[in-house]
């Protein structure tokens, strides 16, 4: 397999074919912020905070690094005035939902994002999809999914499956950047699971 050479922030980096810019950057020790990315999962391209500037044959454009393939000779800038400005707005949009998420607070400090630029809408979920995708792609249990569309979209456990499999798994809990997931699960468990399904779960 051929080796790809290109530049990130003035530093020469190499990547194997098929690698994304984010993967190449991470293996070269260059940090790009992410929220919906997880090394075990297929790239999702949902949060868009890993946006970067790529210059290709003199043309500069903005792309998200978790999806964009590494290519020979391109020049990547992980920060610029515009990139920072867009990251800041994205973080501020998410802080309207989860103002105290440790990950968001840390990013907000780096990019000077305000927690109250936009009207509050505390759903605590930022729709990164980590829990949904981990359950489908890694745990292969499909116990949690998205329901509805657009601004009404939310995550939801499927009681019939969750009653059987979640008790002994809970691997998604630690992935949640806002701790919303745990709350949802506990609430769903208390409201929806009948005692008999709990029994069923114990029997496994």
């Amino acid at each position: 397999m051929s080796v790809i050479q290109f530049e990130i922030d003035g530093k020469e980096v190499t990547a194997a074919e098929g690698m994304t810019i984010l993967e190449a950057a991470q293996s070269a020790g260059i940090s790009i912020p992410t929220l919906c990315h997880h090394e075990k999962l297929e790239p999702y391209g949902g949060c868009r905070v890993c946006i970067i500037e790529v210059e290709e044959r003199g043309w500069a454009k903005l792309v998200v690094s978790c999806v964009y393939p590494a290519q020979n000779g391109i020049i990547v800038r992980t920060r610029s005035e515009k990139v920072d400005r867009i990251r800041k707005t994205i973080i501020e949009l998410l802080m309207a939902h989860a103002p105290d998420s440790p990950q968001l607070v840390e990013m907000a400090n780096t990019y000077g994002a305000a927690r109250d630029r936009f009207e509050k809408d505390p759903s605590f979920c930022i729709h990164c999809g980590l829990c949904v995708r981990y359950c489908a792609e890694v745990a292969k249990k499909n116990a949690i999914g998205f329901v509805d569309r657009g601004i009404n979209k939310e995550i939801s456990f499927i009681p019939e499956i969750a009653a059987k499999v979640c008790h002994d798994c809970k691997e998604c809990f630690q992935l949640c950047p806002t701790a919303y997931l745990q709350a949802t699960f506990v609430l769903t468990e208390s409201l929806a699971f009948s005692p008999s399904s709990k029994e069923l779960a114990k029997e496994g």
């Binding site: 999702y44 391209g45 949902g46 949060c47 868009r48 905070v49 867009i86 707005t89 994205i90 949009l93 998410l94 309207a96 939902h97 936009f118 009207e119 809408d121 930022i126 729709h127 998205f146 509805d148 569309r149 657009g150 601004i151 009404n152 979209k153």
Partner: peptide, 14 residues
């Protein structure tokens, strides 16, 4: 909006 990415879902909402 399908709700998958933040700039569209959250940006349009605001």
């Amino acid at each position: 909006s399908c709700g998958k990415c933040v700039p569209c879902r959250e940006g349009l909402r605001q």
